[in-house]
Amino acid sequence: MGTVLQRDAERTRRALLDAAATALRTLGPSVSLDVVALQAGVSKGGLLHHFRSKDELFAGLAGEWMARFDAAVQTHLDPADAEPGRLCRAHIRAAFDDTVTGDDQLWSDPAVLAALLAVPEVLRRARESGVRWRSELSADGLHPDRVLLISRVLDGMWMTELLEGRADLDERHRTRDILLGLTRDTGPMIAAE
Rank of each mutant, 00 (worst) to 15 (best):
R125F: 01
P188E: 04
W133L: 02
M189Q: 10
P188M: 00
R25G: 05
W158I: 12
L38G: 11
R86P: 02
E128H: 07
L48W: 06
L17G: 03
F51D: 02
A21I: 03
T26H: 14
A167L: 15
A191K: 15
K54C: 07
R174E: 12
R124W: 07
P79I: 12
R176H: 04
S108T: 09
H49F: 13
V36Q: 10
W65V: 07
L48A: 09
R132D: 03
M66E: 04
D8K: 12
L24P: 03
P110V: 03
A23H: 09
G187P: 07
S151L: 10
D145V: 01
P79S: 10
A9L: 12
D145K: 00
S151H: 12
G181N: 11
T101Q: 04
E171V: 15
D70H: 07
R13E: 10
L116M: 08
L117A: 04
G63R: 04
S30A: 14
W107D: 00
D97K: 01
G60K: 03
T183D: 01
V122I: 02
A114T: 10
R52P: 13
D18N: 10
M189N: 07
L77C: 09
A111C: 06
T26N: 13
G28D: 08
A15Q: 09
D168P: 11
I178M: 15
G165I: 06
D97E: 02
D104N: 10
L162M: 11
L113P: 00
R13P: 08
P188D: 00
E10T: 07
E164K: 15
T175A: 13
D81R: 06
F58R: 04
G187F: 11
D185T: 14
